[in-house]
């Protein structure tokens, strides 16, 4: 098995059978942000506490990223002809709508309102062969 790493420390809880992404809850007004941040964009207070967001929600909007993003900032290093397009969407959770890659076949049917669940996927490989992981959402079967 290849060595693996998360793309960013503290972005999501992993390894886990039921991974979740991390946000912050404002100590003053209870407003939840994603990702974590130290200050509240609603009330301006500068004390927040980490919180885990719901891992299921519904697809609020979506697209497919069909051209290879420029590197940097993208860390994929595959040649242009090996680029694998990927789905992108906003998933509506109780805490808010969060943006994510959509896991699964690029041609799978995507519909606004469909139920989605959090997963963790490899999306790039470092020069030393380490797989880089990020959070993503996938349609819930059935």
């Amino acid at each position: 098995m290849k060595p693996q790493r998360c793309v960013a420390e503290g972005l999501f809880e992993w390894p886990s059978d039921e991974p979740t992404v991390s946000g912050s809850r404002c100590d003053s007004c209870s407003f939840v942000t994603f990702p974590t941040q130290d200050a509240c964009p609603r009330c301006g207070a500068d004390a927040t506490t980490p919180t885990q967001l719901a891992r299921t929600g519904t697809l609020w909007t979506w697209t497919r990223q069909r051209f290879q993003p420029k590197n940097p900032p993208y860390i994929g290093t595959e040649p242009a002809n090996e680029f694998q397009p990927y789905g992108v969407g906003f998933i509506e959770l109780p805490e808010g709508r969060i943006e994510a890659r959509i896991a699964g076949d690029i041609d799978q049917e995507l519909r606004i309102g469909m139920p989605m669940e959090l997963t963790v996927v490899p999306f790039a490989t470092d020069a030393d062969g380490t797989e880089v992981l990020t959070y993503a959402f996938r349609p819930i079967e059935g």
Partner: peptide, 12 residues
């Protein structure tokens, strides 16, 4: 916006 947002191909 955090670095991972660009690294994962979302900063577009």
């Amino acid at each position: 916006v955090p670095s991972w947002y660009g690294e994962t191909g979302l900063f577009l």
